[in-house]
């Protein structure tokens, strides 16, 4: 087995066998829990649809784009991210795994990066479900000691003068990184800017896209 698979691989490293084994196991589980009356089968579909379409990094991108364009919103986000993100006056991106939010801002001097070394805590309402690498042993083990090396594996070289601050989400506080606004975006609208805000830039393993990179994408 590939050494990078532990608690990391998406569980499909042995295509035929593992997949069908897991399919059978989960099918049996679903059938049983429905028979027992513990699960409303229609609730499964609603929940899956919610995380496949409604909740994802496009939410967080809107928050960041507003922080870039609206100084009063940026102050609110930095002072009380739970309200600025989750309240009706903010974006209404509230709830499960984002009950208590803190936003941390990248600057030329300090770059922030978020991890959960103990499990897989991640701000679902703004970023959706975590990618496999975020839950993996390589990321969880190393980003707290060698964040510069980890970030480099995402193709990002931070200036040597930039300090790296790691946030280990051990409690129910969830962290959203506000990446630096790329140069060459003066006068861009919130909607245009949101397209530059990647998921990884809001975790801290990436930077927001430059206008050139967006054009090339």
């Amino acid at each position: 087995m590939d050494t990078n698979t532990p608690a990391n691989g998406p569980g499909h490293t042995h295509p035929g066998s593992t997949l069908s084994e897991m399919d059978l196991r989960v099918r049996a589980l679903e059938t049983l829990l429905v028979q027992k009356g513990y699960i409303d089968p229609a609730a499964l579909d609603v929940l899956i649809e919610t995380y496949e379409t409604r909740i994802g990094p496009h939410n967080g991108a809107r928050v960041v784009a507003r922080a870039w364009t609206d100084p009063a919103y940026r102050r609110w986000l930095l002072e009380d991210a739970t309200a600025a993100i989750g309240s009706a006056e903010g974006f209404g991106f509230s709830g499960r795994q984002g009950e208590h939010m803190v936003a941390v801002e990248n600057t030329p001097d300090v770059h922030n990066v978020v991890v959960c070394t103990l499990c897989s805590c991640y701000p679902w309402p703004v970023l959706g479900l975590p990618p496999v690498w975020y839950k993996s042993a390589p990321y969880r083990s190393r980003v707290v000691i060698d964040p510069r090396g980890v970030i480099a594996e995402f193709g990002v070289q931070l200036p040597a003068s930039t300090q790296i601050r790691v946030w280990d989400s051990t409690a129910e506080i969830r962290y959203l990184v506000i990446p630096m606004r790329p140069a060459g975006t003066d006068g861009w609208s919130e909607a245009q800017l949101a397209r530059l805000v990647t998921r990884d830039s809001m975790i801290g393993t990436g930077l927001a896209l430059s206008p050139d990179a967006l054009a090339a994408a």
């Binding site: 990078n4 399919d23 995380y51 496949e52 190393r142 980890v150």
Partner: peptide, 30 residues
């Protein structure tokens, strides 16, 4: 895991899907 070594590099997946198999959808929802 914090500070443990020897797990190898982090391997981000380009355009990673939200779920890699249908059973993962159900595992999340259940």
């Amino acid at each position: 895991m914090g500070g443990t070594m020897n797990f190898g590099p982090v391997r981000p997946e380009v355009d990673e899907p939200i779920f890699h198999a249908d059973w993962e959808r159900k595992a999340l929802a259940l």
